[in-house]
Amino acid sequence: MPGQFRGQLAEKSWQTADMVKLTLRVSRRWPGFIPGQHVLLTLEHNGKNLPRPFSICSPLSLWHSQRQIELCCKVQHNGAVTPLLAQLTAGSRVNISAAQGAFSWQQPARPALFVAAGSGITPIASMLLSQRHWLTPVSLYYRVRGKEQAALLAPLQQLAAQQPLFSLQLSDSRFEHSDAFTRQVCTEGQNKQLYLCGPQALMQQLNAALVQSGVAKHNIFQEQFGPALLAQSTDSISGQYQVALQSSTSQQVFSAQANQSLLQSAEQQGLNPRFGCRIGVCFQCVCDKISGQVRDIRSGALSGHGSEQIQLCISQPVTDLVLKQ
């Protein structure tokens, strides 16, 4: 399939009650990855292809030596896709995309502080476990709800035991308030590069506090995790707009709710535009906006009125729109 590579599940293990680690044997054609990147894993449910992004959590060495990668996935038991992961068995065939994403360890020679929360550990574990030449002290703050919720803890503890330049500190969210945690990150983070990955609310809090405490923006690197769609409160937005979706062969008109993504509105009215991850990372649903204005659901930022590319899955209408796919 175009843009897709075959993988076979070699092993499945539960890291915690709701985090499953998939070890995939990947086709030789797969072009490899930079630690910190993610892939789209396509699962099929009821005849429908459902791609979702998952970060690679394994070190580069596993890929080089055995052509395997590991994905650590949080299973949302009431979700549409992740429960299917639980049904996969060793030998199941899956399709993955090439690795994508810009979150990576930029300058390993500079002191760095990694901050991971929950399933945000996955890309960071890959970065740390891939590192072979340690040049400077690096610490990882890993925030979880109790030790038993900490995925990938064993290999990281092993790394900390073997590598004197690396230190690991767990923060238990049941006992340490997020404000105290933020203060600690701000104190420790001075004059370091910061790599943040975790739920959006915590990331926003950390980011704001860090900038306020004087850390330069270009020293903060982060990957947003989890469904960004839920992050923005959209209750207060209402209204309905007409959207004309043109292609070279047809024009379809649908009415889009202001508090929903254009993709959701289109699908509710029986249209089937192409889609991918549905959280704005894979660019499968990109359209040319000819006219009109949209809001980015993740950031709340408003677009211009003119012609530009937008992603249907993370755009809400602010005016009537003309789109071309």
Binding site: M1, P2, G3, Q4, G47, K48, N49, L50, P51, S247, N272, R274, F275, Q325
Partner: peptide, 11 residues
């Protein structure tokens, strides 16, 4: 198109 399979998509 509803299958979202690039091989079988009208585009």
């Amino acid at each position: 198109d509803w299958m979202n399979d690039p091989l079988l998509h009208s585009r």
